[in-house]
Nucleic acid binder design. Structure first.
Length: 429
RNA sequence: GCGGCUAUAGUUCAGUGGCAGAACGCCGGUCUGUGGCACCGGAUGUCGUGGGUUCGACCCCCACUAGCCGCCCCA
């Protein structure tokens, strides 16, 4: 026997009834985002590898070791093969589209959201897959359109709080920080590096390594005994220039004004090179090591980094897989599959074609109808109907002749005779 | 990429170096125009894959694959 073909490592099938939850999450996102005047953008699932190398950052783990990259087939022998990559995130693609279609020339702020799969070749874990789904949005535009304003940051954060609330997610925490301008960050990293030369040898082995390879990561360390020493390290807030400082203060003031709860976390640093100023994360307990539900930040220099005009922006990406996980945990237990409104049971194979007509009438009237099978014995029709629908309509010889249907409600056990013309109305209640 | 745990029926899981098990679910019957409840009966399966040790391996050993937990990193 041939070996069975299975979904590849880190990918999975989403099946009903779980897909119902996915649809609810996506529908809520669309509804909320559109209320904030966002429009949907769909960018290709693969792009020129250079887009991510230049946009996300050559030195990031994502680009250096987690991308699905391959060489395209050259069209002609003379042509050089192009390197292509499955998108590991969607912001770079959106900014590329912004540049390519000269969206900034409208003079307007572009507010774009996306929903789709992303790909990273990481070791799979619960809540972390190699094909994962993100719901994200970007606010980007020329400075003259107000794209640099702290109001944009606050508006996006307030929108996310509303989104989570409307979805019924409870117990989330918003943490935010400012990582400063493109000039501030390198100065901070140097100061951190300097401070670590003394402190690092007393820290855990992981941090001793991080101190050299990626000093910012020391701030993420979770070893309890080292927390005091890490808190005593220089804070990035001390290295912000006047403008960045005022910008961050304005973001916080706007959040206070509309009552969005947050925690300033001076140790929140994010992994992508393009972030400037505001960075944030919404976390949720019960997700284990993958506790970030969504993350984002401002990226004032990204457009220029990939060859575009100056176009400051701010955006976020929601980890839909993790969001669905937390919703499932909260809904603990009852995940009732979608029940049809009615099960139409033809009694005898001679009734089958007419039963399809009856089902069609009810479906056109907007009811969810499951159509049974005439060869089933009556008892079996009832058993089947009881599993998939709220009520059953018997369609046998008597009903076909008289035009009066027999309906039984599975919940109450009540059985009623209903004229065919009144059936849809009767079942709707 | 690194470390640890795990893999037996559709599902959740027991199990022993000597015939493969339970519960739930599924199928059939008691009941040929009435489901749920009850009772009776039935099928569950290459014991993840491949090799090795052994008279004999689901069990012991090795490799591989996948999942989970942690690390790295991140949504």
């Amino acid at each position: 026997m041939m070996s069975q073909i299975k979904a590849v490592r880190g990918t999975r099938d989403l099946l009903p009834p779980e897909t119902e939850l996915w649809n609810r999450v996506e529908a809520t996102a669309r509804r909320v985002f559109e209320r904030y005047a966002f429009g949907e953008i769909r960018t290709p699932i693969f792009e020129d590898t250079q887009l991510f190398a230049r946009g996300v950052g050559e030195e990031t783990d994502i680009v250096s070791k987690e991308m699905y990259t391959w060489e395209d087939r050259p069209r002609a022998q003379s042509e050089k093969a192009q390197m292509l990559t499955l998108r590991p995130e969607n912001t770079a693609g959106v900014v590329r589209a912004y540049i390519e279609h000269k969206l900034g020339d409208s003079g307007l702020l572009q507010k774009l959201y996306y929903i789709g799969p992303q790909f990273r070749r990481e070791r799979p874990q619960k809540g972390r897959y190699r094909q994962f789904f993100q719901i994200g949005a970007e606010v980007i535009g020329p400075v003259s359109a107000g794209s640099e304003s702290p109001l944009r940051d606050a508006e996006v954060l307030e929108m996310l709080a509303t989104f989570l609330d409307e979805l019924g997610v409870t117990g989330w925490t918003l943490e935010l920080n400012s990582v400063g301008s493109a000039q501030d960050r390198p100065r901070y990293v140097e100061a951190l590096r300097a401070a670590l030369t003394d402190v690092a040898p007393t820290l855990c082995v992981d941090c001793q390594r991080r101190a050299v390879t990626n000093p910012l990561r020391v701030l993420d360390c979770k070893v309890l005994d080292d927390q005091d020493k890490i808190n005593a390290l220089p804070k990035i807030a001390e290295f912000l220039d006047e403008e960045s400082r005022a910008h961050f203060a304005a973001v916080l003031a706007a959040l206070d004004a509309c009552g969005v709860r947050y925690t300033v976390n001076p140790r929140l640093v994010r992994g992508l090179d393009y972030y400037t100023r505001t960075t944030f994360e919404f976390t949720h307990g019960g997700l284990g090591a993958q506790n970030a539900l969504l993350g984002g930040g401002r990226y004032d220099g990204l457009s220029e980094a990939i060859g575009g005009p100056k176009a400051p922006g701010i955006g976020f990406a929601i980890g839909a897989d993790r969001l669905v996980l937390t919703l499932q945990a909260a809904a603990s237990g009852e995940m009732a599959g979608a029940l049809a409104d009615v099960y139409v049971a033809p009694l005898g194979e001679a009734r089958q074609a007419e039963a399809l007509v009856l089902a069609r009438e009810l479906r056109r009237a907007g009811l969810r109808v499951e159509l049974g099978e005439g060869s089933f014995r009556l008892k079996k029709s009832f058993e089947m109907g009881n599993k998939v629908a709220r009520a059953i309509v018997l369609f046998g010889e008597d009903e076909a002749k008289s035009g009066v249907m027999t309906v039984k409600d599975f919940a109450t056990g009540e059985q009623t005779k209903v004229a065919r013309g009144d059936l849809a109305e009767f079942l709707r209640k």
